[in-house]
């Protein structure tokens, strides 16, 4: 397995506050990973460190086997910052020329084809593009660079549902053509479910879950059954969330085998429900690097 992005004990402190702590992970090349978490979880901080815009306080990070910001690696990294900042007074055509001058491997034909398919006129100024168009232009420019890894910070946040779908279509078609590794941050889980094969769940500066999306869906179930039997259930590895009335218990669990006990009704859970359980501050779940730890929540 080739690793596109890896971090060991990565941390970033702003003043007294740790925005990111103890982050250890490996992102296999060719994967499409969703970086998920509430606002302020540390998503942008992590992406900025990965592309060399910020320096970490502790630990190490390697992107395509190199230190972030290294000249050898920058030409192979694509990054679109939050809200797709573009030069307001540049026309689309000027941005394309600019991209072509700045990047030796820039694929002009690709951007032209994208723009005509999306019916975005080349003479239009960036300032007058709609939110959806701006996102599409930013993505097309980033893909045209033919990067080996593409990092996108909240690319979907300001888009309406139709524009989101179109954006993801462009992104997935681009991935099919070039086999680029993608890491995109978002808090829109339903959109990520269909495109991401890996999920990285970040909350309060720490990873709560890093796993293959298929495994997440396979290994998490919602059990409903009698409360007095909620102690140890065969096939349950960990209870992530539970609620109970005087007799009935509802458990969101991670499984390590089939739940055979007929007193439990077993339901599938959506990726969104699983991720929310890991994000929940009352939840006891914390899994980084495949290992389980008790969450050390510091009361402030």
């Amino acid at each position: 397995m080739t690793v596109a992005l890896e971090a060991t004990g990565l941390g970033k402190r702003f003043g007294k506050r740790w925005a990111l702590q103890d982050c250890t992970f490996e992102l296999p090349a060719g994967s499409i990973a969703g970086l998920v978490g509430p606002n302020g979880a540390g998503k942008t901080t992590l992406l900025h460190i990965a592309v060399g815009l910020l320096e970490q306080t502790s630990g190490s990070i390697r992107i395509l086997g190199e230190n972030p910001g290294n000249e050898r690696v920058l030409s192979r990294v694509g990054f679109v910052a939050q809200d797709t900042p573009l030069y307001k007074y540049f026309s689309v055509d000027e941005m394309i020329s600019f991209g072509a001058r700045m990047n030796s491997s820039f694929d002009i034909a690709f951007v032209h084809e994208r723009m005509s398919r999306l019916e975005i006129p080349l003479d239009q100024r960036a300032g007058s593009l709609s939110g959806g168009q701006r996102a599409q232009v930013g993505l097309a420019l980033a893909l045209a660079k033919r990067p080996q890894i593409l990092l996108l910070d909240e690319p979907l946040a300001s888009l309406d549902p139709l524009a989101r779908r179109e954006f993801l279509q462009t992104l997935m078609e681009g991935v099919t053509d070039t086999e680029v590794t993608v890491l995109l941050s978002s808090h829109l889980l339903t959109d990520l479910e269909r495109v991401c094969d890996h999920m990285m769940v970040l909350a309060r500066g720490r990873f709560r879950l890093i796993a293959d999306t298929n495994d997440i869906l396979k290994n998490h179930k919602l059990l409903i059954g009698p409360r007095e039997r909620a102690g140890a259930i065969s096939g349950v590895e960990q209870v992530l969330h539970q609620s109970a009335t005087d007799r009935q218990a509802t458990l969101l669990v991670r499984t390590n085998g089939p739940i055979i006990d007929p007193s439990w009704m077993v339901n599938q859970v959506s990726l969104e429900d699983v991720v929310l359980a890991y994000l929940d501050s009352r939840s006891t779940a914390d899994a980084t690097n495949g290992e389980l730890h008790a969450v050390e929540e510091v009361a402030r």
């Binding site: 779908r165 078609e173 495109v195």
Partner: peptide, 18 residues
């Protein structure tokens, strides 16, 4: 084809391959 599926339902190409 993988590309057709990806283009029509905006899904991860690795998912189609799998």
């Amino acid at each position: 084809t993988v590309k057709e599926v990806v283009g029509s339902i905006a899904i991860n190409p690795n998912t189609v391959l799998k």
